[in-house]
Design a protein around this nucleic acid. Structure first.
Lengths: 120, 120
DNA sequence: CCGGATCCGACAGGATACTG
DNA sequence: CAGTATCCTGTCGGATCCGG
């Protein structure tokens, strides 16, 4: 079955569809998921680098969100046994693919803004 | 400027991009937004019909979410001056367009599931 | 029928200090 | 450097009752 067919298929079942949407939603909702993924889209990062690139995030939140993203299979944690020890975070292939979803959201936002303008 | 060009344009500015994503995110995140939009995708509905179609939602939450969705320009509230008075909710054009975003999220979910399978 | 008002618990997220 | 531990606050959402 092609992936397009799979999409058409799941659209016939509202419950499954909503659940699938929620899966994706869990990966990008919350205050910090998006900034983290956005930063990692530019390339792998160390903990400290992430903390510096994302304004105002505390180590507690960064640690917590990274763990969730790793559990969700969106971020990979790499430990290099050098001296000193080096830890880097990077997006998985799925993590990179989220860009498509984000693009569609931005496109909707632009369309929506145009639509609202028309109404006024 | 074409809309595709507008998307390419906004992608050059990370801050704007993240803000635009958040706009779309605000419309679909939360516990009830998705079920409400999903129900209205099938056609206009009265308050009571929505409450019956969406399991376990209280009138308070339904009212609150409908107001937010209306403010965001995603749902329209129609009052018909018949006797008895009739009120119906329906999606705006922007509201219908969200389907594209949801589809891309489901597609990502399917891809992601396949990707995770490969890894195991 | 279509909600509003009030009260309440749970949890996301923040501040600060500390550790291997 | 890469996180934990503790404490605290605010917002989300639920329960219940009330009004036009």
């Amino acid at each position: 079955m092609t992936e397009l067919a799979a999409l058409q298929d799941i659209k016939k079942c509202p419950r499954q569809y909503v659940l699938a949407v929620n899966d994706a939603l869990n990966v990008i909702s919350g205050k910090w998921k998006l900034p983290i993924i956005g930063t990692l889209l530019f390339g792998k990062c160390r903990f400290k680098e992430l903390q510096q690139n994302i304004e105002k995030i505390t180590p507690r939140m960064l640690s917590k969100e990274l763990k969730e993203l790793e559990l969700n299979g969106v971020v990979a944690r790499r430990v290099y046994d050098s001296t000193p020890i080096l830890i880097e975070y990077e997006l998985t292939p799925s993590g990179h693919n989220i860009l498509k979803v984000l693009d569609s959201m931005v496109q909707w936002g632009l369309d929506h803004r145009a639509e609202v303008m028309k109404a006024d």
